[in-house]
Write a protein that binds this DNA or RNA. Structure first.
Length: 677
DNA sequence: ATAGGGTTAG
């Protein structure tokens, strides 16, 4: 055999195509060199590099004696392919065969555990590494930093980091990114500054962590200065960095800027598109998000799950059930439904009024995680099905899923809206004592709401006064006031009303609550003052609109929307309904009009609120008996709430109105959610 | 010589 060992080595490092590799492989076998450590190891890495991991494994398995080099070649091969399970598998085999891992085996194995989020295993390997004298190894240490930061354990990570003798750029980057990822942007910036003070020069990757930190901090000045820094340092070349910038500006609501950067990017990837789609969706610009999803497909990008999930979010925002369904079906066809997209689809179904579809999907998901459970509980909650929410919660406990703060926020809110007071109080206490979760302001607001609805306003006030770590905010006082209003508890109510006014509401619904309270308490002077204050505050400028999906298309209506092609027909329907309603005993609640105009005009304004236009349009264009689902961007008006009860009876239809807070199911003259508030 | 830090989504 004229091929020397040396020549084989050279060949293996310079030729990366499969036919050549196979030829060399054959030569190694015929020459017997295959059984020597060095060429075999080389062969394994070469096969791994061209992505032929199976052959690499075969070579590895056939080796008569395997040294640490061969093991590492194999473990690194799996790591490069992203096969973390196999990495851990090979590591375990090594241990079983009595091979002593070295620095690189530990490093790669711990990295694999981090990407699998298998923190137990990761820590076990870490301890083994320490036991074998790799305590001060930089690579192992850095892998550990990554493991801890992936688990959000930045306090421990910081301790390890501080103990490291030589901190290189990779370690610093891990710390910066770690803090940024868990929402501690300021800490991340602090670490970056420290790094600069140590004279370390950053690269694009550490800047990526810094961009994420800025995204989290949300201060435009910081964002712009980091952007400037990138330009000055000439680091603005990588697609990934551009994409991150798009995300940063989009998440902070600067969509024009995000879009401009997106358009001017030298190249784009699917991720760049996804980042923009998600930016639009998260900022409530559902139409733009969906258009962008279509546009990206048109120019040849196959949407990834992130963009599809964002599109589902957009659908749930505007109640676009038909589009939501087809996106869900598309994900199913691609066989890519997993937890995140399933959760998004469940949320979409429930927010579009298709609660049973949400449940059906939920039941099909095996091995549910916390967010999935929480989403189902919240779904029942917004529809006013407290018992169902509680039963899902019980299932959750039975399967040993551990509830978190969000679980209880959804559960307590669901119980409150269904008047399950004892259950609410019980689980609030269990949350604190058994699950050791500290109540947040949100939890307090739920329980205050729960108690106040039941008329236990003194108890609610005691709870508010017992709050130590939080200051009671608008939601808490408004909930209390509403209970006082409904149960004619005037003295606590007066206190709550004052607190609400002190906090300067920017929502006309809250002003009307205060005014109504003063009216029922016969405190006329205060009532007049509230009306005056309201005029002075000049209420939110957000125009109210309602949407209805008819035959798979979304139709939006603004108040008194005369431009609509069916306006005359809609007016006729509204007027006809109006006279029938009055005959049944309905009187318009003009306190819900906040303009200084004549009463007759006020009444007219009420009956042309956007929700009623949407209902009229729905009635006109659907078969009798069809359920109508209306979506409103603000809170449904109190008068309309009353009127829709009558309408549901007159036309004998189920009418579902979703407003910012929850769902109102109107059927046979009643609303499932009881009181308006 | 090898290995450790990177973008979007519930």
């Amino acid at each position: 055999m004229w091929l020397t060992k040396h020549l084989i080595k050279t060949l293996l490092s310079s030729f990366k195509d499969k036919p050549t590799l196979s030829k060399i492989h054959a030569l190694l076998i015929t020459s017997g060199l295959i059984n020597q450590r060095n060429p075999a190891t080389k062969l394994i890495s070469s096969y791994a590099q061209i992505g032929d991991i199976k052959v690499a494994r075969q070579v590895f398995d056939k080796l008569p004696q395997r040294g640490i080099d061969a093991w590492n070649a194999m473990i690194i091969a799996y790591s490069r392919m992203g096969f973390s399970n196999d990495v851990v598998g090979v590591y375990k085999e090594m241990i079983n065969e009595g091979i002593k891992p070295d620095s690189s085996s530990y490093t790669v194995a711990i990295k694999a555990c981090a990407s699998l989020c298998d923190f137990e295993m990761g820590e076990e390997i870490w301890h083994q590494a320490v036991g074998f004298g790799y305590k001060d190894d930089d690579f192992v240490g850095c892998s550990v930093l990554n493991l801890l930061s992936k688990g959000g354990r930045m306090v421990e990570a910081k301790a390890v980091f501080e103990g490291m003798k030589r901190k290189d750029l990779v370690c610093w980057t891990t710390m910066v990114t770690g803090f940024a990822k868990i929402g501690q942007g300021l800490e991340a910036v602090g670490v970056f500054r420290e790094m600069q003070e140590q004279g370390m020069v950053g690269d694009g990757i550490v800047m990526l962590g810094l961009i994420q930190a800025c995204t989290d901090i949300g201060d435009m000045n910081v964002c712009l200065s980091v952007h400037g820094h990138l330009i000055r340092r000439n680091l603005l070349m990588d697609v990934v960095i551009y994409t991150s910038l798009v995300d940063m500006y989009a998440k902070n609501g600067h969509l024009c800027l995000a879009y401009r950067i997106f358009c001017n990017m030298p190249q784009k990837t699917v991720v760049s598109w996804s980042a923009l789609v998600s930016g639009y969706a998260q900022n409530g610009l559902a139409g733009e998000a969906l258009e962008l999803l279509i546009e990206m497909q048109r120019v040849g990008y196959r949407p990834d799950l992130a963009s599809l999930v964002s599109a589902l979010l957009a659908c749930s925002h505007v109640g676009y059930l038909k589009m939501g369904r087809s996106i869900h079906a598309y994900i199913l066809r691609r066989q890519e439904l997993e937890h995140i997209s399933a959760t998004a689809a469940i949320d979409m179904y429930s927010k579009c009024g298709a609660l049973s579809s949400a449940r059906e999907l939920f039941d099909m998901i095996g091995c549910k995680d916390v967010i999935l459970w929480n989403t189902m509980i919240a779904s029942y909650g917004i529809h006013g099905h407290g018992e169902a929410a509680l039963s899902v919660f019980h299932d959750m406990i039975k399967t040993n899923s551990y509830p978190d703060d969000a679980t209880f926020a959804s559960l307590l809110s669901a119980l409150g809206h269904s008047g399950l007071v004892e259950q609410g109080q019980y689980w609030f206490n269990e949350m604190i004592n058994r699950f050791r979760i500290e109540p947040s302001e949100k939890h307090y607001a739920c329980v205050v709401d729960l108690l106040a609805r039941a008329g236990k306003v003194e108890e609610a006030l005691d709870l508010i006064n017992s709050m130590k770590k939080h200051e009671a905010g608008m939601s808490i006082w408004a909930a209390l006031l509403s209970g006082c209003h409904n149960h004619r508890k005037f003295s606590v109510g007066e206190l709550a009303a004052k607190k609400v006014l002190e906090l300067q509401p920017d929502d006309s619904g809250i002003y009307s609550l205060v005014a109504n309270f003063f009216a029922s308490a016969k405190m006329w002077k205060e009532m007049a003052e509230v009306r005056k204050a309201m005029r002075m505050a000049g209420m939110k400028k957000v125009p109210g609109y309602s949407m209805v999906e008819v035959k798979g298309k979304l139709h939006a209506f603004l108040m008194e929307d005369k431009s609509h092609y069916q306006y005359e027909h809609m007016v006729l329907i509204i007027e006809k309904l109006d006279s029938e309603m009055r005959a049944m005993g309905y009187t318009p609640k003009i306190e819900f009009v906040f303009h200084d105009i004549e009463e007759e005009v006020k009444v007219k304004m009420l009956s042309f609120h956007s929700e009623r236009l949407a209902i009229a349009f729905g009635l006109l264009n659907t078969e009798p008996g069809t359920k109508l689902v209306i979506n409103k961007n603000l809170r449904v008006c109190g008068d309309c709430h009353e009127a829709i009860k009558y309408i549901s009876k007159i036309v004998n239809r189920e009418i579902v109105v979703r407003d910012v807070k929850r769902f109102h199911h109107f059927k046979h003259g009643v609303c499932s959610c009881g009181d308006y508030w």
